[in-house]
Design a protein around this nucleic acid. Structure first.
Lengths: 234, 234
DNA sequence: AATACAAATCGATATTTATCAGTCTTTTAC
DNA sequence: GTAAAAGACTGATAAATATCGATTTGTATT
């Protein structure tokens, strides 16, 4: 099922510097070197792209599809940290630590993933300060996102957390108030730190109150302001 | 009350490269430049060292004392992310984002803080790839710590979270099974994401079960293995 | 030492959230 | 096209956690 090739979708890293801000700081020879140390694999919905605990040898960039980034918590429970879209660089966390993956990635869709050798990446960091700076920018942004997520998970109750989840999905992932959800109900629960049954209940409540319209996986946010209010009041 | 000076404790950044791994990658002229763009301030226990939302112009290194790093969540609740010890570099999160502090720092003790100009630091990152690499290492490590914290906060119940808090304090902060707690009961609650009353209750339970010995702020861990077991079972 | 004030404590109660059991619906597999 | 499996949903109940009020302890101030 996994096809090793450089697809039409992603022929060459040289094209990627248009799409990935971080890569735009690299010179032509640097991009050529990256390109020589990468390969592509296709995944079907549900497949694990990489698994927490295994050794980290490559960074990951999706070129098509969506995936979930999650950590495996207590008693097989998953905590979804965020949803991965094409052209984000994934796997930095392990770069300089213990060369292990500290989270898992699973495809939510049929996806194409480009894997880049960590050593090629590290070399670029060492030789190109602008690239290093972009990399740092990226890391620190994620740190700030983490803080917000911790506050949501630990201080808000279920309505607030679901509101946060919906705001995140519509604002950051789908960039639309109207979208076709790739997440199962269980995934929504894992994203917002509650049981599946509770997630279903709150979503249904929001639906009944006219805040959202939810039919299966078709989701439309009808009253965004109300979601923001619920998010703030916890 | 705040005294602006370079104290005996921290005369010169040149001395700091012995104590701060990240600074050891800097050259002599780079350290001299850092040293020229820094100043020291003393804080009393309870004082705010910097406040979430204000503009970030300096990085912070404690040279004496302890402090708490926390984000201000919903309804004035605090979430303590971690405890700051001397010789850690604080404030990176804001370096390349929006130049705002995304968390507050408050002294838990009488502390001495060294403030380093952000621009001097950024310059070192741009010109010294080894330093940049150390900086990245630091960021990614914090990212991994964040994941663990999120799992603890969102998937464990109170006993597990208190166990995690105690393991953290004894392992990472005091590096001893026997210590004089700088945190109030409210702080312990804010570190573990629960109400003050609940934190008190669980601590008392642990005390009654002989897992810890707690008298006021004197804390001794009697059965570390048991704490680990409680942490794992949630 | 007496007073004032903040922090810690604790039992009772209310609220939030998870769990469970069962039904219904949709998708998948042959 | 039908059976089987997985996912979605719901109400009832149980468990976890927060809140409240009252009391005690500790600490700082005069």
């Amino acid at each position: 099922m996994a096809k090793f090739s450089k697809s039409d979708n992603c022929k060459n890293c040289l094209d990627c510097n248009m799409r990935i801000p971080m890569l735009s700081t690299l010179s032509r020879p640097e991009l050529i070197e990256l390109n020589e140390n990468r390969f592509e694999v296709k995944f079907k919905a549900g497949e694990t792209i990489f698994k927490q605990g295994t050794s980290a040898t490559h960074l990951l960039i999706l070129t098509t599809g969506l995936a979930k980034l999650y950590v495996e918590g207590v008693q097989d429970k998953q905590l979804i940290i965020r949803i991965i879209k094409p052209w984000e660089i994934i796997g930095q966390a392990s770069l300089y630590f213990d060369n292990r993956h500290h989270y898992s990635i699973a495809a939510l869709d049929n996806t194409t993933a480009c894997f880049i050798e960590i050593s090629a990446f590290k070399k670029a960091i060492q030789t190109n300060p602008l690239f290093a700076e972009e990399f740092i920018k990226n890391c620190t942004q994620k740190g700030i996102f983490s803080f917000e997520k911790m506050v949501s998970l630990s201080q808000k109750q279920m309505h607030g957390r679901i509101a946060d989840g919906l705001i995140y999905l519509s604002g950051k992932v789908y960039e639309d108030l109207n979208f076709d959800l790739h997440l199962s109900r269980q995934d929504v629960a894992d994203l917002t730190g509650m049981s599946k049954d509770s997630a279903i209940r709150i979503l249904k409540e929001f639906h009944n109150e006219g805040i959202i319209e939810l039919d299966g996986r078709k989701l439309k946010i009808l009253n965004y302001g109300q979601l923001e209010r619920i998010s703030e009041t916890g």
